[in-house]
Design a protein around this nucleic acid. Structure first.
Lengths: 162, 162
DNA sequence: CCGTATCCATTCCGATACTG
DNA sequence: CAGTATCGGAATGGATACGG
């Protein structure tokens, strides 16, 4: 991000963060998922400065998250639409939103609502599941370094206590 | 974040982003999920400057994501452990990692592996599902503003082309 | 080992004015 | 409407030296 780029880290999370770019990027992606396609949509919804928005949009296009396409209705301007790469960020966006709804909700309630379209009910929490769809407890999820080492609840070392 | 705080936005995503603080925060949380508990763990794993690490850790503690606890082994130092609030960020972390694995993988492969502990197999993709666990296509997921307005694939307006 | 205190470089962002 | 150009302020992050 700032001084050091994360893109050379051998860590998918860091590489993703480096790619997405900044917090504004995620909010722009959220708005794109909500249907925003035009410069003025993003600008109005987010209250972001125009030059900043230009910069973020360019980054997202360069990163293959957004794509510039001619306006479908025949007008002169171009529009910004999510690529497959960008749509694939939906779980990240939704998970962020669900965490916020649960832990840092606004007193006036959430501004966006995510539902199962078929039933109209709120989308179940995005959460680790088994292949058959069963929810997993966190201690049933194994996180380890690719080179071996310990599970989520243990430290990676024996030696050298303080 | 920078100049403007997102915390007053009526948007769970923005509020979450504001809470988490910075990219380093998410990497620190990832490490904590991997079992890191001590200052030196984070510092070594992330290659982060000490003062920056101090600052981020303090923010995370203040935000209720991490908790300072006495070292379990009786040594003088304290350790940092995830709160429930922090553990609840697991879906975000995992989703970020999965996106990175898919789209911006490192040539040497991912550095961390997430599995179903029971079977040892890779964790299925974190993705929106119905209550019964069935995967949803993105167009089966409804995203709308809380005050009404259109679905994910439509713009929010009729007026004012150009 | 775990920080804290300075100092400094880079980046991000916002406000404003201006162009096609 | 959709940017671009310039400016300045703020936050992030790194290096280093120092204390508990």
């Amino acid at each position: 991000m700032k001084t050091k780029s994360f893109s050379d880290m051998q860590c998918s999370i860091a590489r993703t963060l480096d790619h997405v770019g900044s917090w504004w990027s995620l909010l722009i992606i959220r708005d794109a998922m909500m249907g925003a396609r035009r410069f003025k949509h993003f600008q109005r919804n987010l209250g972001i400065a125009k030059n900043t928005l230009t910069s973020r949009l360019n980054d997202l296009v360069a990163g293959g998250i957004l794509e510039r396409v001619p306006a479908a209705d025949g007008y002169a301007h171009e529009e910004y639409v999510l690529t497959e790469r960008g749509r694939d960020l939906a779980p990240v966006i939704i998970a962020l939103g669900q965490w916020g709804d649960k832990w840092v909700a606004h007193e006036k309630g959430p501004s966006t609502v995510v539902t199962v379209r078929e039933s109209g009910e709120p989308l179940p929490r995005i959460w680790p599941r088994r292949a058959d769809g069963e929810l997993l407890a966190l201690n049933e999820v194994g996180m380890r370094w690719a080179n071996g080492a310990g599970p989520i609840t243990e430290t990676q070392e024996k030696e050298d206590p303080s």
